[in-house]
Write a protein that binds this DNA or RNA. Sequence first.
DNA 1: AGGGCAACCCGGACGC
DNA 2: TGCGTCCGGGTTGCCC
Length: 275
Amino acid sequence: MPELPEMENYKKLLTNKIIGKTIIDIEVNREKSINTSSTDFIQELRGKQIVKIDRRAKHLIFRLSSGKNLLLHLMLGGWMYIGNDNDSPNRTKQVILSFQDIKLYFIGLRLGYLHMLDENDLVTKLSDLGPEPLDPSFTFENFQDIFQSRRGKLKTTLIDQKIISGIGNCYSDEICFEAKIKPTITVNSLGKDRLFSLYNSIQTVLRNAISLGGYMEEPLYLGDQLTGGYNSHLLVYDREGKECRRCGGTIVKIELSFRKCFYCPDCQKVDIGLI
DNA sequence: AGGGCAACCCGGACGC
DNA sequence: TGCGTCCGGGTTGCCC
């Protein structure tokens, strides 16, 4: 599922493709994906330009020349494609934005959405999100303060969007592996050294994933060689029964807070942290 | 505060 | 090929 690195990748690639371009046509094939009537939605978009794309947590924000914003959350299984009707994937497209020379397709929006919001509503909508883990203002001291005041399990805490935003089921496992900490540990049992290791692992894993295009394999456009490049670099996620690339042990899958959780029992032994 | 749990949603995978 | 069934999973909100 798209998490921070995937959305950051989309932001970068889409920025190169569509910034400054005018939306000339809009197709809404699923009313539930949007927050107004199709008629209003189309009217608000037609003739407007996309002047900037921002990312906040797992959301993308398309800034429109009208001053309004399109807020995208892909949720489960949502993805995008940019191209034309000849090369686009043979899938149901919930929303299509057409520019002069290219179309942006929104695919797999089930619980995902594309909402038209003014600045106030946008700020309100995003106000409960925790800090951006890659923002320079998110220091180790911030991280330490947040985690030391918590009592939940490590993985559960990492994916809680109110605590830190942007990390989901895949990268939480990869981060725990990188830090060599078992995801089931309660966070307030982690000492300063392990918290520091965790903080660094968050940075390392997310930055690396971004630079390699994230782990979702569907290309954004014809000839896109970047998107999905991190998939082959995953060390634990979806690797149940496979060999640990660090120690040769076997990756296991457990259920943790109703979620799949993958880790290496040999590398990630710490479940009563004292260090 | 944190855990449990249900609801949301439907394309696509799978079975026959 | 075709039809029916079921699953996945981030987020929200409510309860304890």
